[in-house]
Amino acid sequence: MLDTDWSDSWRGAFRIELRAEAIGLAWHGWPVLPGTFPAHAEAGGSWTGPVPVHQDWADRLDAHPNEVATWWNGRPYSLLVATGTVLDAVEVPDELGKRAARLLRATGHPAPIVATPNGRWLFLTTVADRLPQELAAEGTVRWHGQGSWIPLPPTPFQHGVVHWRVKPDVWGWRLPTADAVHSVLARALDQHDADQAAFAGAGQFAAA
C-alpha cells in the first residue's frame, strides 16, 4: 500500500496520527523529531530509511510539546526519537529479537520493543555508556546511543509501517536498565550460536 497510495487524503490522515503520537511521546519527555518519509523519493531522491528533517535536530531535543505539534502541521513526517539522552536502543535482527523477547517475558519484566518492516527489532533501554563486547562484536547488532535516532510507530516505510511489539505503557513508561536488556540479548545470542552449531553438527552427521 505504501508503495503507491500517497494521495493527499491519505497523507492528511496519516499526518494526524503521527502528530498525535509525537505529542504524546513529547509529554512523556521523549526527545521526538520529524523525519523523512517514503514519498520524498518521489521527488527523484532515494529513500532507504528515515533521517531527521532538520539539520539542527540535536539542538531541538528539549522542544516543548506545543512546538513539537507544529512540526507535523504540514507534512506526514516520520516519527523519530533521539537516543543518548533519555533512552538508548539496541537494534537486532528479528530472529534474535524474538528470542530475547521470550526471555524477557519469562522474567516477567517486558521492555518496550519496536519492529520495523525490514526485519529489525529495537529494544529500548536507559542510557548506557557502552555495549557489551559480545554484542558489539556481532555484526548484525547496532547500538543507538549519543548522536543517533530510531523510528517509532507509526513511521511508514516503503513496504509497511513501524509498529510496537511491546508498548511503553506496558512497562508503565519506565525504561528497563541497559545492563538488564544487554544481558538478555547476550543470552539470546548465545542460544542462537548454540542452535547453529547443533544444526551444523547434525548436518555433518547426516552427510557421514
Score class of each variant (00 low, 15 high):
residue 161 V to F: 13
residue 42 E to D: 14
residue 42 E to R: 14
residue 19 R to H: 07
residue 77 Y to E: 05
residue 96 L to N: 11
residue 102 R to G: 12
residue 108 G to C: 04
residue 111 A to M: 00
residue 84 G to K: 01
residue 132 P to G: 03
residue 3 D to H: 12
residue 180 A to T: 12
residue 27 W to A: 03
residue 2 L to I: 13
residue 34 P to H: 01
residue 79 L to C: 11
residue 50 P to M: 04
residue 186 A to V: 09
residue 124 L to R: 06
residue 41 A to G: 14
residue 147 G to N: 05
residue 139 G to P: 04
residue 99 R to P: 04
residue 99 R to F: 06
residue 149 W to Y: 15
residue 208 A to Q: 08
residue 152 L to M: 13
residue 133 Q to G: 08
residue 76 P to E: 02
residue 65 P to C: 01
residue 165 R to A: 11
residue 56 D to S: 12
residue 6 W to T: 08
residue 180 A to G: 03
residue 76 P to V: 05
residue 181 V to I: 09
residue 46 S to H: 14
residue 144 H to W: 03
residue 59 D to R: 14
residue 25 L to K: 13
residue 72 W to P: 09
residue 167 K to Y: 10
residue 35 G to M: 06
residue 41 A to D: 14
residue 82 A to W: 01
residue 131 L to C: 07
residue 180 A to N: 06
residue 94 D to T: 12
residue 204 Q to N: 05
residue 162 V to F: 07
residue 8 D to C: 00
residue 142 R to C: 02
residue 102 R to V: 10
residue 72 W to H: 07
residue 105 R to P: 02
residue 134 E to N: 14
residue 136 A to K: 05
residue 25 L to R: 14
residue 53 V to K: 10
residue 44 G to R: 05
residue 23 I to E: 13
residue 136 A to T: 02
residue 133 Q to C: 04
residue 80 L to V: 07
residue 19 R to D: 00
residue 86 V to A: 15
residue 157 F to R: 05
residue 44 G to S: 07
residue 200 A to G: 00
residue 24 G to N: 15
residue 187 R to M: 10
residue 189 L to A: 12
residue 97 G to L: 04
residue 55 Q to C: 04
residue 66 N to W: 10
residue 54 H to Y: 13
residue 132 P to H: 07
residue 84 G to T: 01
residue 12 G to S: 15
residue 205 F to R: 12
residue 8 D to M: 03
residue 14 F to S: 11
residue 155 T to K: 04
residue 106 A to Q: 11
residue 59 D to K: 12
residue 67 E to W: 08
residue 140 T to L: 03
residue 157 F to S: 14
residue 46 S to W: 11
residue 185 L to N: 08
residue 202 A to M: 07
residue 68 V to H: 03
residue 70 T to W: 00
residue 170 V to L: 11
residue 144 H to E: 02
residue 167 K to M: 04
residue 88 D to W: 03
residue 47 W to Y: 15
residue 1 M to F: 11
residue 107 T to M: 05
residue 86 V to D: 02
residue 122 L to D: 00
residue 34 P to D: 01
